[in-house]
Design a protein around this nucleic acid. Structure first.
Length: 944
RNA sequence: GCUCGAGUGGUGGAAUUGGUAGACACGUUGGACUUAAAAUCCAAUGGCCAUUAUGGCCGUGCGGGUUCAAGUCCCGCCUCGAGUACCA
């Protein structure tokens, strides 16, 4: 009777499915525990061995918590809106839903194969209208809300309207657009409804605005900042340009401070918190207004507002710098400088974002001919423009203090602008001085002699007195653009009356995606939904009707953009709690029971995307009183990425010769990816198979070394295009899911990225076979356990293992518990232990890791109830562990011998026991030790 | 540049947080079983020296320091990786 993992795994996969073993109730006497792994985008390639890492880890934890008696919720679903399905649709004409459906089926098979204990009755799909109904619903709630900074929470827009009607907006402290005019109640009430609507839009948490966006012509869509990497799109690597478009935006900046503050109360990896902190980019300083001096043709004085983190250096200002795109540039430039400025603006706009980033060293700029007046000294300060000032950050203008900022310093040196020194005892002839801690201000009137902190405080109060500045906190975080010119995404529940957006009433949701005959933008450049013929809103009958009925009286145009990828993933974790609910996003009973995610596992690549947006929506939901927690995930673990090991062949340039890797030195070669399945474990290429795979090399000459063609190796991300993908199906076929699960955990620490290497899997496979043998000790290898009580040694092995495995799981060190199992099984085998009292608990503690084999053994032990549904408080067995311990005893730091002593001895008892021991006396030879160091449970050290 | 993280055998990685460095596994070598292969089992495996055994010295990127004791703590470097970047 051998370990037949195929039969065993098929049997239990079936059993769990039929009995709905992992269905979680929304009500239970047991304590709840919610384990969640980030749901995947179902791509056409299926899962590779890298994907399951996090899923295995969360499954082990979920199974462990069930054993401990928790009511565990572990759901799974699909983030099924997205670009690849749409791009496939563009190429083939096949509806994205068809592709998506097929991919999901494939994923489901693979999930089942790996034995994950998901509650599939709660599956969600973001592209399912029953699901995206609630994504649309949240959008409407955001539209109907504004952010009250005084109360630090989102409130109903009706409340804001009431205040406007009663007292205007002068007393309102809201997170809103910069350009909101101040108005009284009377003025408000006299506005027509369109004007009122325009103003309200500037307050809403989701709003329409002409935004400068990252436009990717190749993809035909707008990208969020986190989807653009080094000036090219994250997906596909296409160039991205800046472009103004009317877009939906999310006012995430309203929550910037809370997103920062609440990081303190969640147990997330520090590196991830750091990434979010940097991304939000809080900087404390002051907003200062400099007024331009009327000159030449410009009679008016314009205020220029700047943000600075160093208001204490205000007396060191020797010029102002505006971004070339700054709106005042054209107004203040003098005739004499006009040509130079326009030439400069033209040349910067020609430079792409990428060039600008790549070329930081070259200093460029132009003088506008205009001046501002220093708020204190009243001196004239020249205004320059320069592209080192970014239009998108702060106000797009800076007060330049060359002595205190290196970029200002370089700019001043380059254009021969004076560099006044305002620091006590500092030499600034070589570079700027930017150390806040060591700053003592000089040559600065009332700030002389003050340090950074005091000077900042003083100058802000002086600025406030003269009305030219105020203390301010600035964030790098921008509002998130929420429109995509795409088909395969959530439609906005929005139609337009007189150009202003209206929300479709909740009762008529979901607004389903219309059919289109092509998935590309329309001929007039509108998003793909512009191709739909039935895409207009009949407001009288509240339904979608044909476009040609649009009369702007009763039938109105619908929004043509769709929502971005992160919309559907920003509340899915709560929807799992009550996924079938048709009346609400989730019932209050459900959320009161499940509260929040206790453990969230996913990739670190979502740090500034999904993991930030979802926190924002959760806080909004909290403000609305819909969820009990400000944060949705109490603890988060980032699993590392499993990388592929690519193989390369080397073609000599200009020839059809392929050189083995040892022969390429000094020769010009092009490395080409070879499929890893054509290479054996000692890097030798199967040349015939390679020729078969790549017919263009049929005639190629292979230059061998020692009779072999060796490939080069490199660790890269696993991807189809690099031919380095290892598929879990093949591994499961050869070794079984339990082997794969254990091996992925054994590979190394969960949070670390590491290359996949199939070679070592034979070790865990051999272990599972040994485990099987432990329970099959009959003469023919048939199942046999003894009812004899266990030996002391066997008990010790078992209890050591239980203790270690529990510690490991609680600290997510799954790799070392696999090692512990191996030691335990080896010990039991060598002790020929067949005692039921050992083998029963062993099956239990192994079941989170290798659930199929554990179930099978459990059944053979005579249990009728599944190991996965019973509760075993076995993990609380540490009192059984050891009764004595061997203490290594060292003399003068060198280990000499060991002494066996009872465990419950205290420090002094151990000391005296050791000192009176024969071996110690022999070792000391009558010498009197200076010191005896005792670490209970560990070591005794005698210093002579 | 800034922020974070990591450097341990041929390889992946352990080390109870200051207490026998290299667990466990892969690989390699030798052996048993077998007609043979696979599978399985046993032994060796950081380096150097010694050997009949007992043993000795060195060793966790580099250089210092604290300590009876340092992979672990402190100071100064080096290298690699990740994120971010003209953020005022």
């Amino acid at each position: 009777m051998n370990y037949n993992f195929r039969a065993i795994e098929a049997k239990w996969r079936n059993y769990w499915a039929q009995k709905s073993t992992f269905k979680a109730d929304n009500d239970s006497a047991k304590e709840k525990y919610y384990v969640l792994a980030m749901f995947p985008y179902p791509s056409g390639a299926g899962l590779h061995v890298g994907h399951p890492l996090g899923y295995i880890a969360s499954d082990i934890y979920a199974r462990y918590k069930r054993l401990k008696g928790f009511n565990v919720l572990q759901p799974m679903g699909y983030d099924s809106f997205g670009l690849p399905a749409e791009q496939y649709a563009i190429q083939t004409g096949q509806h994205p839903s068809v592709t998506t459906e097929a991919n999901i089926a494939r994923y489901r098979d693979q999930f089942d194969q790996l034995g994950f204990s998901y509650d599939w009755s709660r599956e969600v799909r973001t592209s399912d209208p029953k699901y995206y109904k609630w994504t649309q619903w949240i959008f409407i709630q955001l539209f109907n809300s504004w952010y009250n900074k005084d109360k630090d929470r989102a409130e109903e827009i009706e409340e804001l309207i009431r205040i406007f009607e009663e007292e205007g907006n002068s007393n309102i402290n809201a997170a809103c657009d910069e350009d909101v005019p101040v108005f009284s109640a009377t003025e408000w009430n006299e506005l027509n409804s369109k004007k009122q609507e325009e103003i309200l839009l500037k307050y809403r948490l989701t709003y329409l605005a002409d935004t400068e966006v990252n436009w990717c012509p190749e993809l035909g869509t707008v990208l969020a900042n986190d989807e653009v990497i080094n000036g090219v799109s994250e997906r596909g690597g296409y160039p991205v340009v800046r472009k103004k478009m009317t877009q939906w935006n999310m006012r995430i900046t309203a929550y910037a401070q809370r997103l920062l503050d609440d990081l303190k109360e969640i147990d997330w990896p520090q590196s991830l918190k750091d990434a979010q902190t940097n991304w939000i980019g809080r900087s404390v300083g002051a907003s200062v207004t400099f007024n331009t001096k009327p000159s030449g043709n410009s009679k008016t004085s314009y205020p220029i507002e700047v943000f600075t983190t160093r208001p204490d250096t205000i007396f060191g200002v020797s010029f102002m710098t505006l971004a070339p795109e700054h709106e005042l540039v054209s107004k203040i430039t003098t005739d004499a400088q006009k040509e130079e400025v326009e030439t400069y603006i033209h040349s910067t706009s020609q430079r792409s974002e990428r060039d600008r980033l790549a070329d930081v060293k070259t200093i460029t700029g132009a003088f506008t001919g205009a001046y501002v007046e220093h708020p204190f000294t009243k001196e004239s300060i020249p205004i320059w423009i320069g592209d080192y000032v970014l239009a998108g950050y702060g106000t797009g203008a800076v007060m330049s203090v060359p002595s205190g900022d290196q970029r200002d310093y370089d700019f001043a040196k380059h254009f021969k602008i004076p560099i006044p020194n305002i620091f006590e005892g500092i030499d600034i002839s070589k570079e700027a001085f930017a150390d806040k801690e060591l700053t003592i201000i000089a040559n600065s009137e009332f700030l002389n002699g003050l340090n950074y902190k005091d000077a900042t405080k003083r100058v802000i109060s002086e600025l406030e007195k003269i009305g030219q500045g105020i203390g301010k906190v600035n964030y790098r975080l921008r509002d998130a653009v929420f429109s995509r010119q795409r088909y395969w995404g959530e439609p906005f529940p929005v139609y337009y009356v007189d150009g202003m957006p209206r929300m479709i009433q909740e009762a008529f949701l979901p607004l389903k995606l219309p059919e289109v005959d092509k998935y590309l933008p329309t001929d007039t450049g509108e998003p793909p939904l512009g191709n739909a013929t039935k895409w207009a809103w009949d407001s009288e009958h509240s339904k979608v009707v044909d476009n040609n009925l649009i009369d702007h009286v009763k039938v109105f145009p619908l929004e043509l953009n769709t929502m971005p990828g992160w919309a559907g993933s920003s509340q899915y974790f709560n929807r799992y709690m009550d996924p079938e609910n048709d009346k609400a996003i989730f019932s209050q009973e459900a959320i009161k029971y499940w509260q929040q995610v206790d453990l969230y596992i996913g990739g670190v690549e979502h740090a500034t995307g999904h993991l930030l947006y979802s926190r924002f929506w959760q806080k909004f939901m909290f403000d609305k009183g819909l969820v009990p927690h400000k944060e949705y995930a109490r603890k988060l673990i980032n699993q590392g990425m499993i990388l592929g090991t690519s193989a390369f062949v080397y073609r000599e340039e200009g020839t059809n010769r392929l050189l083995s890797r040892g022969l390429i030195k000094g020769i010009n070669v092009t490395p080409l990816h070879a499929d890893v399945s054509l290479v054996n474990s000692s890097d030798e290429l199967n040349i015939e198979a390679f020729k078969e795979w790549r017919p263009e090399f049929k005639e190629a000459e292979f230059i061998l070394e020692n009779g072999k063609y060796l490939v080069g190796r490199e660790v890269e991300k696993m991807s189809k295009s690099k031919y380095n993908v290892v598929n879990p199906d093949a591994i499961c076929e050869e070794y079984g899911a339990d082997s794969l699960r254990m091996y992925e955990m054994f590979l190394g620490p969960l949070e670390q990225s590491k290359p996949w290497n199939t070679a070592g899997i034979s070790g865990v496979y051999a272990f599972l076979k040994k485990l099987w043998r432990l329970y099959h000790s009959g003469p023919e290898g048939e199942f046999k356990v003894s009812e004899e009580p266990a030996s002391k040694a066997a008990l010790k092995s078992l209890h050591k293992t239980i203790k270690k495995v529990e510690e490991d799981i609680e600290s997510f060190s799954f790799n070392t518990s696999v090692a512990t199992f191996m030691i335990c099984v080896n010990e039991l085998l060598s002790q020929k232990c067949t005692s039921r009292s050992i083998l029963e608990p062993l099956a239990i503690i192994i079941s989170p890791y290798a659930p199929h084999i554990a179930e099978e053994l459990w059944e053979k032990l005579g249990h009728t109830q599944s190991i996965s549904t019973a509760i075993f408080p076995i993990f609380e067995a540490d009192h059984l562990v050891e009764s004595s311990k061997e203490y290594p005893v060292s003399f003068n730091g060198k280990m000499r011998f060991t002494i066996e002593l009872p465990l419950d001895m205290g420090k002094e008892e151990i000391e005296s026991a050791v000192m009176s021991h024969e071996k110690t006396k022999a070792q000391l030879q009558g010498r009197i030790p200076k010191k005896v160091i005792v670490v209970p449970g560990k070591i005794v050290n005698i210093v002579g």
